[in-house]
């Protein structure tokens, strides 16, 4: 069977790959959106923290024999704790200066993390064993089991985070504080702690994405910095700070990228940036962004 002159299997295959990429875009831009909403910070270290998640998973497996499912819990926690220490130790002191300094500081942190990991493990990638080999027959195509699970994990986590933010008390604090943190603090909520936890949670999501990514891609020091800039474009397209926008744009752009790979492979690395340009021209605040 062919669709627009493309074998259906190839099309489905690329769409599936696109969804896998989209799963990571969504997880990463979701974390960025949560952090941006409350801290007004573009967390440049997000890519490095994603990379760190993958390395922690790799280390857990290599040194302690803790497998993928264990790492899926432990590694994000490790990344979150390190993130909270960063917030507590450094980012906190930038709250009253121009937001650009937060970007610069986290840029520096990204360089440090990337350099340290490269120093310890080298620049070349290391494989992480696929915890779920084999494939599933979806009726119209066969899909590697693990990739299906990766998409599912991302979807479930994104949905759970969305529900937690929209439907729980803590989520209400987060939404309210993103609008007016002083007011919420005047009600007796410990905003400095909420900020620390929120940053930890956001980068924990990046760490989680890193663990999920480890079996799909190689574990390498540069895996995060290459990805994060694309994710920034995804965030600009989705609308800064919009939770739903980041998830929808993440998966959607992953799919579009997959399609581009089928129909015009040369543009597959740049298509998201082209879309970003169109968005900047026609809807500068992003698809789901408010003008602020």
């Amino acid at each position: 069977m062919e669709i627009f002159g493309i074998p259906a299997q190839a099309l489905y295959g690329q769409l599936a790959l696109g969804l896998v990429n989209g799963a990571f875009y969504a997880l990463l831009s979701l974390g960025l959106a949560i952090i941006f909403g409350l801290l007004n910070l573009i967390n440049f270290a997000h890519g490095a923290q994603y990379m760190l998640g993958a390395y922690v998973a790799w280390m857990l497996l290599s040194y302690l024999g803790i497998g993928f499912w264990g790492a899926l819990v432990v590694a994000p926690l490790v990344v979150a704790v390190l993130g909270m220490a960063l917030e507590r130790g450094l980012l906190r002191y930038l709250r009253d200066v121009d937001q650009i300094y937060g970007l610069l500081l986290t840029f520096g942190v990204a360089l440090i993390l990337e350099g340290l990991v490269a120093q310890s493990y080298g620049w070349s990638g290391m494989p992480y064993a696929n915890p779920l080999p084999g494939s599933v027959d979806l009726g119209f195509m066969r899909m590697p089991m693990y990739r299906l699970v990766a998409i599912a994990i991302s979807l479930v986590v994104c949905l759970a985070v969305w529900i937690a933010i929209e439907r729980t008390k803590l989520g209400a604090y987060l939404r309210a504080a993103s609008e007016d943190a002083d007011m919420v603090q005047a009600f007796g909520v410990n905003i400095p702690r909420l900020i620390m936890l929120t940053y930890g949670f956001g980068v924990g999501l990046a760490g989680l994405a890193g663990v999920v990514a480890a079996p799909v891609y190689q574990v390498s020091p540069a895996m995060g910095s290459n990805l994060i800039i694309v994710v920034f474009a995804v965030v600009v397209i989705g609308g800064m700070g919009s939770i739903a926008g980041s998830v929808i744009a993440g998966f959607g752009l992953g799919l579009i990228e997959g399609l581009t790979k089928v129909f015009y492979p040369a543009a597959s690395t740049t298509v998201i940036f082209f879309i970003m340009i169109l968005i900047l021209i026609f809807r500068p605040s992003g698809l789901f962004g408010s003008t602020r």
């Binding site: 450094l90 002191y93 930038l94 200066v97 300094y101 610069l104 500081l105 840029f107 520096g108 942190v109 990204a110 360089l111 440090i112 993390l113 990337e114 350099g115 340290l116 490269a118 120093q119």
Partner: peptide, 20 residues
């Protein structure tokens, strides 16, 4: 050369925190 990345990063952090 691998340390250049780390050193650049440290300079970023130090300047942003203490030396804007």
């Amino acid at each position: 050369e691998d340390w250049i990345l780390v050193i650049n990063g440290v300079i970023f952090v130090v300047v942003v925190i203490a030396f804007r």
